Simulated assay, not measured.
Amino acid sequence: MATLELNQIRKTYRNADNETLKGINISIESGEFLILVGPSGCGKSTLMNAIAGLESISSGEIVIDGVDVSNVEPKDRDIAMVFQSYALYPNMTVRGNIAFGLEIRKMPKVKIEAEVNRVAEMLQIDHLLDRKPAQLSGGQRQRVAMGRALARQPKLYLFDEPLSNLDAKLRVEMRTQIKRLHQKLNTTIVYVTHDQIEAMTLADRIAVMKDGELQQLGTPKEIYNQPNNMFVAGFMGSPSMNFIKARVDLGEHDNPLGQVWTADGQAHQINLPDRLRKFDGETIIIGLRPEYITEQSTEEGRTWTEIPMKIDVLEPTGPDTIAIVEINQQHVACRLSAEFDAKVGDMVPLYFDLSHAVFFDVKTEMRI
């Protein structure tokens, strides 16, 4: 286990117009599982490669356990990396692939055998030790790649989109495997993915990146419920957060109200927090996740607003149903119960739980 500090990490490629990494600052505790998440081209894999030493940095410091390794060769950083492509040696057995790094380090054969058996049993691939990669499924190959990294017992583990080549069912199974491994070994892991579900289910903390910049660093709950800006709010969650424009008006009792219109042209008022008084006469954006727009308002202690809505689309998912409605000429996703009896075109009362709403400035897209 090791701590990792990324101090003002910048990266500019030769002949490039823009910086790929723009002053990234992240501090990772020993035993922490940090996930770097963001869309393609955001710089997350470049940052991962910089930590591993596979990419040089233009400026800044990469510090592992208090030692600046910014200019240290990859082999001397005591890091193990698991790649998207598995990167197994096809001519070697599973046993040979796991043992290879230990043999390079000239570990005694008895210890190598013991370590290979330990890792294989942990990953439930001990019955595959004499097979070659071509005889394995995608999930088995990925476990062998993980086993090769685990056998080295380095200070830091790096996972670069390790599950992206697997089918949906295997991805879920491997997520569980990785979660159990981390809980058992308490290792320090930095994990890159573009899959926000992986990020939410695996991470102790999530670093959301966009265009080479760190947008937010926090726990999955913080990222989901208290996003810094509209990009983070829209990127995390499936379906993503709804963004509803609303004009703020101070009502008769000097309370801020938001005006919204439904598809039938009817105007509706919703109560807004007192802190939005200063936006009187201006338009703001209400961020509300689909699970807070439902067909029932049974839970006490919440601020419910009832609005009759016309169902445009219904998407049954099994445990629930996603309904698409229209507010202010925008499509809005609602999460209804699987048993809810409604058809496309029906007018139904839907309840908006505004106690979980977040609000954004239209101009800056930052959370108010």
Rank of each mutant, 00 (worst) to 15 (best):
N49K: 15
T12W: 01
S56M: 12
I9Q: 04
E61K: 15
M48T: 04
K22P: 02
L34K: 00
G41D: 06
G38N: 03
L54M: 13
G60H: 09
N18C: 07
I51D: 13
I57P: 04
I51T: 09
I9V: 06
K11A: 02
G43D: 11
R10H: 12
F33V: 09
C42R: 06
D17E: 15
T20Y: 00
A16K: 10
S30R: 11
I64H: 11
N18W: 00
I28E: 04
I9A: 01
L34F: 07
T20W: 00
A50F: 14
N18M: 13
K22R: 15
S30K: 12
P39A: 12
N18R: 15
A52E: 05
L21I: 10
R10Q: 03
L21G: 04
S27C: 05
P39F: 06
F33Y: 14
T20E: 05
P39I: 01
L36W: 02
I51K: 07
I9P: 00
S27I: 04
T12A: 13
L34R: 02
I28K: 00
S40F: 05
G31R: 02
T46S: 14
A50W: 14
T20D: 05
G60N: 12
V37Y: 04
S56I: 09
I28H: 03
A52R: 09
K11T: 00
T20M: 09
C42G: 08
I9D: 04
M48P: 02
L21S: 08
R10F: 06
N49V: 08
I35D: 03
E61M: 04
S56C: 02
T20K: 11
K44P: 08
L36D: 09
L36E: 09
K22H: 09
L34D: 03
L21K: 11
G43R: 12
V63I: 15
Y13K: 13
N25Y: 15
N18S: 15
K22W: 03
G60Y: 11
N25H: 12
L34V: 15
N15V: 03
D17H: 08
G41M: 05
S59T: 08
I26F: 09
N49D: 14
R10L: 01
M48S: 03
Y13A: 13
S27Q: 13
S59W: 08
T12D: 02
T12S: 04
I57L: 06
S40E: 12
A52D: 08
K11L: 11
V37L: 08
N25W: 13
R10D: 01
G38T: 02
E29W: 00
S30Y: 00
K44H: 05
F33E: 01
S58E: 06
N18V: 12
S40L: 11
A16V: 12
N25G: 03
S58K: 10
E55D: 14
M48F: 05
T20C: 14
N18G: 03
S27F: 05
D17Y: 04
G31I: 07
